Computed example of a mutant assay.
Amino acid sequence: GVLTGAGLALAAGAGRPALAVAAPLAATVWAYDLALKHTPAGPAAMAAARGLDLLLGAAATGGGTRAALPSAALLGTHTLAVTAVSRRETTGGSVLAPLAALATTGVLTRLVTHRRTRLPAGRRAAAAPGLPGSTPAGVLATALGAAYAATAARPYFHAALNPSPPLTQRAVGGGIRATVPLQAALTARTGAVTTSLLIAALAPAGRLFARRAGMRKVSIT
C-alpha cells in the first residue's frame, strides 16, 4: 500500500496524464495479486499491467500516450503469451500455450521489424528520408527484433514438442528474457537509438540471472 501510494504521488507530480495512467495501473496490479492471478483472467490482467506500465512511461516523459498505444499493445500481447505458458510451468502437459506463444512471437517479430512506427514530432523532422528500415533506428529495430525472436522462439518450440515442466519453465524464462530486446526494438522504432541500446544492454543481466536461477533449480518467475 505504501509503495502504491508513493507511486501515485510521483505520477501526480509528473502531471495529470501520468496520474490518469498510474491509477488504473495500480488497480490492475492489485486486482491481479489479490484476485485474478490464479483465474483464467490472470494472463489478460498481467498483459494489461505491462501495457499500462509502458503508457505510464510515455505519459510521465511528456511523449503522450496516443503515440505509445501500438507499442503498448505489442508488449501486452507478448506478456499475454508468456503468462499463458507460465500457467503450466510446474505441471507441464500443455501443447497449445507454447504453440500459441510461438505464433505470437512470429507475428510480433514481423510487426516490429517491418512496420514503421510514427515518430514523435521532434524526431520526425530530423529523420532522414529513405526506405523503411534504412535509417540507423530502423536497422537497430530490425536487429533487435531478430534478437527477440531468437530468444523466445526456440524454447517455445521445444516446449511445444515436449511440454514437460522443465522445458515449459525454459519457455517461460525465454519469454521473459525476450521482453528486453522487444522493448529495445519498440524504443528504436521511435527513433530513440541511445535509449534503445541502453535497454538492450540489460539482456546479459537477464541471461546471468536465468543461469543462476537454473543452478538453484527455481523458476525465473
Rank of each mutant, 00 (worst) to 15 (best):
Val139Ser: 13
Pro129Cys: 04
Gly93Ile: 03
Pro129Ser: 04
Val85Arg: 03
Glu89Asn: 05
Ala146Pro: 01
Thr83Asp: 10
Leu131His: 12
Gly145Gln: 09
Arg123Pro: 00
Pro163Asn: 08
Leu99Val: 12
Arg124His: 13
Ala137His: 13
Ser86His: 10
Leu102Gly: 14
Arg123Met: 07
Ala147Tyr: 02
Val82Ile: 12
Arg154Ser: 11
Ser164Leu: 05
Ala159Arg: 04
Arg118Trp: 01
Gly133Asn: 03
Leu144Phe: 03
Gly138Glu: 01
Tyr156Ser: 00
Tyr156Gln: 09
Ala128Ile: 04
Tyr148Pro: 07
Arg123Val: 07
Val107Asp: 06
Tyr148Ile: 09
Ala160Gly: 10
Gly145Cys: 10
Thr77Glu: 11
Val139Gly: 10
Ala153Cys: 03
Leu80Gly: 07
Leu161His: 04
Ser134Lys: 01
Ala100Thr: 10
Gly130Pro: 08
Ser134Thr: 04
Leu108Gln: 05
Leu96Asp: 13
Gly92Gln: 10
Thr168Tyr: 12
Pro98Val: 08
Arg124Trp: 07
Thr105Ile: 10
Tyr156Gly: 00
His114Ile: 02
Thr135Arg: 13
Arg115His: 13
Arg124Ser: 14
Pro120Cys: 01
Ser94Glu: 10
Val82Phe: 06
Ala121Leu: 14
Phe157Thr: 13
Gly76Trp: 06
Thr142Ile: 14
Gly145Ile: 09
Arg154Asn: 00
Ala101Arg: 02
His158Ser: 14
Pro165Phe: 04
Leu119Glu: 03
Phe157Tyr: 15
Arg88Gln: 14
Leu74Cys: 07
Ala153Glu: 05
Leu161Glu: 11
Ala141Lys: 05
Gly93Thr: 01
Thr90Tyr: 06
Val139Phe: 00
Val107Ala: 15
Ala150Ile: 14
Leu102Gln: 08
Ser86Thr: 09
Val85Asp: 00
Ala126Cys: 07
Gly133Phe: 06
Ala125Phe: 11
Arg115Leu: 12
Arg116Cys: 00
Thr117Gly: 11
Gly92Thr: 08
Pro155Ser: 04
Ala159Met: 06
Arg110Ile: 13
Leu74Val: 12
Ala81Thr: 01
Ala100Arg: 12
